[in-house]
Every structure is written in structure tokens, then in C-alpha cells.
């Protein structure tokens, strides 16, 4: 049986049988990896810490017969303990992990998604602004997963997005010009925030967090991006429902 060490981020874990767990891991080289961790619910398990959600670890994985492999050991690289100090951070990290889980298949390398998730988890754990990190993640992960938001041209007519009251329309693939769609006040995107979110697209995360966005405009963008992701993934995102209830 082939054994190798993969650097992984735990996306989620589920109880399996009496004392085992099934972990969904994201690796740079092999994309999503499903691994069973024997007896990891017992207090003296050496595997339990490796598959805590959002933990970065070097995992020793042994190939199984089917899709599910076996976690044989490993070392925690970064536990990102700062995430668990706040339920909103946990909810945001869960949303990011859920999107990565739903959007990837076992066996397909995902180096850019891995790097994006790692950057975002690291800054969440450090206590940086959660909504801005989420906005950055949604913007970039949707592009990596093949349904990126159109920020330059109207997703409906293809014309330039020059300004005015731009509507976020998930069904047509992104932003639409005022001639194609109109939305209620407080739900449209203005030209200035569009410029700033375009800068998000080309900046590294730490730099992007310095780009000023008003709370109101950040909320419009976040609501729009969440709707865009949900529409294109065509699955219900459970952590998003909890995140919304915490924000109320």
C-alpha cells in the first residue's frame, strides 16, 4: 500500500463507527483527500489533533482500496487556535472550508485553492477583519472553481461597467449595468467600490485588507458574492446560514 506525507488543511470531519472519524482534507498535490482516522475520538489519540477543522498538518496517508484512505500519523504544523476563540471566525472558516469541499474532487491537485485557504485561515486566526477576508476568499475561490464574478463587463449585455447603479445578478453571472437590471436602493454597487474590489482581485490578501470599503458597501458585495457562490455551486451552504444568523 502506497504511503506518503501530504501537507493538508482539514476541511471537516465526521464521526465514523464507535470511535473513528472520517476527515476531509485539502492537500496541495492531491486536492481533496478522504481519510479515516482510527480511534481518533479517544482522548489519547495521536490522530485527533491532526484532523481538527482548519488545522494545517503534515499527514502520513496510506492508500486504501477505495476512495477512503487511512491516516497513519503526522505532525500539526499550525493549529490556527485563534479561529476557535470566536464563533463568527469559526463560521467564516467553516464557510470557506465548505466551499473548498464542495468545489473539489479527490485526486485533482488544487495548489492555488490550498494557498488561498491557508492565507485566509492564517489571517482569520490572527484576528484580521473577518468580512474582508471572506470577501477576498469568495472573489478568488469562485474564480479558481470556474464561476468567477465578471467585474469588467456587464454579465448580461457585455458592455463596459462604467459606473452607475450596478446590480449583482447571480443568474446572469455577476454584475449587470443599469440598462439591463435595476435593483432597490442599498443593494446596488457603486463605481468607487467596484474599483476597490477590482483591486482586491489583483492584490495579495494582506494588501487587500488595507483597501478601504465602507461597511455598507462591503455588506452589499458580501451579500452579492454569497448569492453568486450559492447560485453557482447549486448546494445549500449550511455554515452560511449559521453565519447569517450570527450576524443578525
Amino acid at each position: 500500500m502506497r504511503e506518503r506525507v501530504l501537507r493538508t488543511i482539514t476541511l471537516l470531519r465526521r464521526d465514523l463507527g464507535e470511535a473513528d472519524r472520517l476527515a476531509v482534507l485539502l492537500s496541495r498535490e492531491e486536492g481533496k483527500v478522504l481519510a479515516s482516522a482510527k480511534s481518533s475520538r479517544k482522548p489519547n489519540s495521536r490522530l485527533a489533533a491532526l484532523i481538527e477543522p482548519f488545522v494545517l498538518a503534515d499527514c502520513r496517508i496510506i492508500e486504501g482500496r477505495g476512495e477512503i484512505q487511512r491516516l497513519a500519523g503526522g505532525e500539526v504544523v499550525e493549529p490556527f487556535r485563534g479561529i476557535r476563540s470566536d464563533i463568527e471566525r469559526v463560521a467564516r472558516a467553516s464557510l470557506m472550508a465548505e466551499i473548498a469541499d464542495q468545489g473539489t474532487e479527490p485526486g485533482s491537485a488544487a495548489p492555488r485553492l490550498f494557498a488561498l485557504l491557508l492565507d485566509c485561515l492564517r489571517l482569520l486566526a490572527e484576528g484580521a477583519a473577518g468580512p474582508s477576508i471572506e470577501l477576498y476568499y469568495l472573489l478568488h475561490s469562485s474564480r479558481l472553481l470556474g464561476y468567477g464574478l465578471s467585474l469588467d463587463h456587464c454579465a448580461s449585455c457585455g458592455g463596459d461597467l462604467a459606473g452607475g447603479e450596478l446590480a449583482m445578478v447571480p443568474e446572469v453571472g455577476g454584475l449587470a449595468c443599469p440598462a439591463c437590471y435595476t435593483v432597490a436602493a442599498g443593494r446596488w454597487v457603486d463605481a468607487l467600490s467596484l474599483e476597490r474590489v477590482r483591486a482586491y482581485r489583483h492584490s495579495r490578501l494582506r494588501v487587500a485588507l488595507e483597501i478601504p470599503l465602507s461597511n455598507g458597501q462591503r455588506k452589499v458585495w458580501l451579500d452579492g458574492l454569497r448569492a453568486h457562490v450559492r447560485y453557482h455551486m447549486d448546494v445549500s451552504l449550511r455554515s452560511l446560514d449559521v453565519l447569517r444568523s450570527l450576524e443578525r
Partner: peptide, 11 residues
């Protein structure tokens, strides 16, 4: 427990 991944919130 609160578990956003399972859709479990405070309510």
C-alpha cells in the same frame, strides 16, 4: 455544540 459546518447555530 455550535457547529456551522453542520448548520447548528445558537438557536
Amino acid at each position: 455544540v455550535l457547529s456551522p459546518a453542520d448548520g447548528i447555530g445558537p438557536e
